[in-house]
Structures are given as structure tokens and as C-alpha cells.
């Protein structure tokens, strides 16, 4: 019998083992990004800015140049890089604590300036790395280690919808929310992230893709059931879809 290679590790993924828990969606998104970097042929000029959080080691998981920003500041770091070397491809990879709590200033202003960078935003509605505390994206009633009776909006406010919020700005070119809960959605996510990179290559400005993700460990739900919980709860509050797409407009404007 002749063995035939039908799938292999993307070149842009390093040999370093992932540190993620079983059932976590970071790994799927990492692979998607690595495949896209390979397909676009940009491995040798792409730089990742990793966040603080579960994906703090993301800079080691890709076979590309990379750094770790301080908590929430990845869009500012990426801005400094892109403004200094506009011909490099710069992307940030950030969780919801990083991007939607401590880093709100940086993401809002990078988006508003229309920085020509790509932002991959992983929303799993909880602080993972620190052990399951409430995130800005934690749903009403969701139990975390700092909202043990469930998030009460009177005490802890409401979950923040980042795509909806940023799409109010004039600056961003492309904002979409996706998920990787089913094979179809994985394909759709890949398409969205690819577009977010292509926009940068074409000098079209700021692109952000939010990926709804599971966190079985901190949700306290087994991986398969976590997907169901994500579909039944997160997707209701965070509907999938394109929130802004000015790609064609930017092409016409000739913005670089």
C-alpha cells in the first residue's frame, strides 16, 4: 500500500508543543493562521505580536519572528512595527481579557487610525491563564471564580461586543466575527482570516477577526459539551457575521 501525504504541519507552525488545554480552540486558530501564512508566501516577512494570557506563548508556536507585548498593548506594539517597516506583515493575536478589558484604549485607537495591521481576537468569555475569572466578555449569569453566583450586570456591568463597538468607527476596513465549532465554520474562519491578511498585504488598512472559542477547563464543561454551550449561549449574544467591510471602498480610494 502506498502512503500518501494528505495533510502535514504547515511550515509556519514551529515544532514547539502547544501549551493549550484539551478542547481549547486556540490550536485550531493557530493552524489556520499558519496555513494562511504559508499559502500567501509571507512567512519570511511576517511578525507576530503575542498578548498576555493563555496565548502568551503564541510567539513560540509560529516559525516566524515574534514578540510578546505587555498586557493589552499589542495594537500599539504592532503600530510601532508597521509604521517603521510598512513592508512587513504584522499581526496581533489577543484574548478577550487582553483586548476587551485592559487593552481597550489601544485597540480602539489602532482601529480608528486604520492601522494597516491584522488583529486576531479570541473570545472565550473568561480569563483563562489566571484561572477562570470574569472577563469583559463573560455572559450575564455566567459563573466564574470572581462571579461565583453568575455575572450580575448590576455589580459587574454587561458583556462587551467588540465587533459591534469597533464597527462604529470610520477607521477600520474589515471586521468579522467567526467561530470554529463546526467544519463549515472552520472553513469560513479561514476565509475571514485570509482576507484580514490580504487586506494588509494590499495596504487596505485595519482588519480584525473575532473568533468565538471554548474554554472547557475554566467553563468546567467537557470539550464536546463546551461546543454546544458556545453555540447555545455565546452565539446568541455574539452573533457571527461581517460587521464592517470597506474593502472595496478602500481599493477605490487607493488607501495605502
Amino acid at each position: 500500500m502506498n502512503a500518501k501525504v494528505v495533510m502535514k504541519r504547515p511550515k509556519s507552525l514551529s515544532q514547539t508543543d502547544f501549551t493549550y488545554c484539551p478542547g481549547c480552540h486556540h490550536g485550531i486558530v493557530h493552524r489556520i493562521i499558519a496555513e494562511i501564512i504559508d499559502e500567501l508566501g509571507i512567512r519570511e516577512k511576517t511578525v507576530i505580536v503575542a498578548p498576555v494570557g493563555c496565548s502568551v506563548f503564541a510567539y513560540t508556536f509560529f516559525e516566524i519572528d515574534g514578540t510578546v507585548a505587555s498586557h493589552g498593548r499589542a495594537p500599539a506594539v504592532a503600530t510601532g512595527m508597521k509604521r517603521s517597516r510598512p513592508d512587513r506583515i504584522i499581526f496581533t493575536y489577543q484574548g478577550d481579557g487582553d483586548l476587551a478589558a485592559i487593552g481597550t484604549t489601544e485597540i480602539v485607537h489602532a482601529a480608528n487610525r486604520g492601522e494597516n495591521i491584522t488583529v486576531i481576537f479570541i473570545n472565550n468569555a473568561v480569563y483563562g491563564m489566571t484561572g477562570g475569572q470574569m472577563a469583559p466578555t463573560t455572559l450575564i449569569g455566567q459563573r466564574t471564580t470572581t462571579t461565583i453566583h453568575g455575572r450580575d450586570p448590576k455589580a459587574a456591568g454587561y458583556p462587551i461586543r467588540i465587533c459591534e463597538m469597533l464597527s462604529q468607527l470610520e477607521g477600520p476596513t474589515y471586521i468579522e466575527r467567526v467561530a470554529v465549532d463546526t467544519p463549515q465554520h472552520v472553513i469560513k474562519t479561514k476565509k475571514a482570516i485570509k482576507k484580514a491578511f490580504e487586506n494588509q498585504i494590499n495596504g487596505l488598512g485595519f482588519s480584525l477577526v473575532e473568533v468565538l472559542s471554548t474554554c472547557p477547563t475554566n467553563w468546567g464543561i467537557p470539550p464536546v459539551e463546551s461546543i454546544k454551550w458556545l453555540q447555545e449561549n455565546m452565539m446568541k449574544f455574539y452573533p457571527l457575521g461581517i460587521y464592517k467591510d470597506r474593502t472595496e471602498e478602500r481599493v477605490r480610494e487607493g488607501i495605502v
Binding site: A76, T79, G80, M81, R83, E106, H109
Partner: peptide, 15 residues
Amino acid sequence: VSVVNMLYGASCVGV
């Protein structure tokens, strides 16, 4: 806060 992180990024890419 953003300024210093922009410096971090710019310095990372060697300028």
C-alpha cells in the same frame, strides 16, 4: 502608555 509600546514595536524591528 501607547507611546512606550509603539517604541517597543519600532525598536523590535530595528530602527
